[in-house]
Amino acid sequence: MTENIVLDLFCSVLHGLEITVALTVLGSVLAFICAFVFGLGRIARWRLIRIISVFYIEVFRGTSVFVQVFWLYYALPAFGILLSPFLSGILGLGLNVGAYGAEVVRSAIQATGKDQYESCCALNFTRYQTFRYIVLPQAFPRMLPVFGNNMVELMKATSIVSLISLSDITFQAQQFRIRTGQTFLPFAVTLLVYFLLYLGILFFVQSVTRLTKPKSVKV
C-alpha cells in the first residue's frame, strides 16, 4: 500500500514536472522575445509602434495572468481561435511576463549614460552600431538579475495552467491528494521540486551573467 502510494506520487510528479519545465522554458523564451520587441518598441522613434508597445505592456501588466490564460483558452474559441492548452499556457505566461520584461529592457537601455551616446556620435557610429556595440552590451547585464526574478515568477505562475486542463506539478499533487487523502507527502515533494527548479534558474542566470561580464585580460 505504502509503496503503491510512493510510486503513484513519483509518477504524478514526473508527469507534472514535464509540463512545468516545458512551460517555464518555452514561456521564458517567449517572454524574452516579447521583452525585447516591446521594450524597444516602447522607445522607438515611430509613434504607432510606441503606442502599440505601451498598450501591450500596460494591458498585460494591469490584468492578472490568471484571467489572461483563461481568455486565451476559454474566450478565444468564441472568435474562432482554438489554441491547444499547452500553447495557451505558453502564450499566457510568456506574454504576461514579457510585459514586465519589456519595462526592464526599456529602463536598462535608458540607464545608458548620455556620455556614451555622445562618444558614439563623436566616433561617427550609426544608430544601429551605437545600439548594437555600445548600448546593448552595457544594458544587457543590467537586465539579467531582473530577468532572473521574472523567470522565477513565471515558473511559480505555471501552477495556474491547471485551470486549462494542463497537469502541471501543482495540479498533479492536488489530484494525488484527492485520490489518496495524503497531504503532507505531495506538498513536501512539490515544495522541494519547485525549490530545485528555482535553484536551476538561479544557476542559469548566474552563468549567463558571468558570460556577459566585461573581461579584462591580464598581460
Binding site: F70, Y73, Y74, A75, L76, P77, A78, L82, S162, L163, I164, S165, S167, F171
Partner: peptide
C-alpha cells in the same frame, strides 16, 4: 476525458473544449 478544475468545466464546455 478533458481534465480541468471544477471551475473550468462550464467555461470549457462553452468554449467547445
Amino acid at each position: 476525458g478533458v481534465l480541468s478544475t471544477f471551475g473550468g468545466l462550464i467555461p470549457g464546455l462553452l468554449a467547445d473544449r
